[in-house]
Amino acid sequence: MSVNLQKGQKISLEKESGGALGKVTMGLGWDAIKTKGFLGFGSKSEAVDLDASCVMFDESNRPLDVIWFRQLKSRDGSVVHTGDNRTGAGDGDDEQINVDLNAVPAAARSLVFTVNSFTGQNFSQVENAYCRLLDAANGKEVARFNLSVQGSHTAQIMAKVYRHNGEWKMHAIGENASGRTFDDLLPLIVPHL
């Protein structure tokens, strides 16, 4: 059973999945913007390029590594981005970031997942945007965070997966922001670490 996360909510990934999670997938999905033509006749779709990123932080809240469309794999290989989707076309997750929690280096304390509108549309224009966390072993959805808080923001700090007392937990941050890439969000991420 999936947990629908609310902004600020924290959950234990091990309890929600029914056991220790070894590999998780953060999925991001959205739909292209549909606009009606002149006098309601005809319609067209406007491509939206949302980008999922993962920033790995150490105990001192310094970035260790970043996984995004320009670097699809962490240097240690524990985090892998499946590739950049520039349109939102198709069903299901449009972008995914796979994390082998057992291989995440001991120096990494937290992984922060962000989403940015690279093409600049704000989320009030983007339909059906969500992020979710899956148990990669069986494809079971562990948690979902709907990006349904519509507004003029172009980015969101979605969630943090972090180590606490030897187990992995998830914090649904849900912080609205503006920016085309994760770089623009770094000053806003630090208070949530």
Rank of each mutant, 00 (worst) to 15 (best):
E59D: 11
P63H: 04
D100M: 05
F123S: 05
G42I: 12
E16Y: 05
E95C: 03
D135G: 10
I157S: 12
G22R: 08
W68A: 14
V190E: 13
A47V: 06
R163W: 11
N165L: 15
D84V: 00
L134F: 04
M1V: 07
Q6Y: 12
M170W: 04
G151K: 03
G29Q: 07
N4K: 02
G19K: 03
L193Y: 10
N85E: 03
M158E: 13
S74M: 06
H164A: 11
A159F: 01
C54S: 02
Q6E: 15
K36S: 14
N4E: 15
I189K: 02
S148Q: 04
P187M: 14
Y162G: 12
A107D: 14
V142R: 02
F182C: 12
L101N: 10
E16A: 13
W168A: 03
G18K: 01
I157G: 09
Q121I: 04
S178E: 15
F69L: 04
S78A: 10
G83Y: 05
H192N: 12
E127P: 07
K140L: 00
R144Q: 11
V80P: 02
L50D: 08
V149Q: 11
D94E: 15
R109A: 06
R62M: 09
E59K: 10
A155W: 02
F182L: 13
A20M: 13
A47T: 08
P191Y: 14
R75C: 10
W68K: 05
L72C: 07
M158F: 13
Q6M: 14
I157R: 00
N128F: 06
I189Y: 15
M26K: 03
S117K: 02
Y130C: 07
S78W: 04
L185V: 09
S17D: 12
K7W: 10
G37Q: 03
G40S: 10
L134E: 05
W30Y: 14
G8S: 09
E167A: 08
E46V: 11
K140R: 05
A89E: 08
N116K: 00
V104Y: 09
A136V: 01
V48P: 08
T181Q: 15
K36I: 14
G90V: 05
W68R: 04
Q9L: 09
G139N: 06
A159K: 01
S53H: 00
Q125I: 01
V112S: 00
H153D: 02
K36P: 08
S2T: 13
K160W: 04
V3T: 13
N146F: 00
E16D: 04
A89D: 06
F113S: 03
Q121M: 02
T181E: 15
S45P: 00
D65I: 12
N146H: 01
N176V: 11
Q125N: 07
E16T: 09
F145R: 00
G88H: 02
A103Q: 13
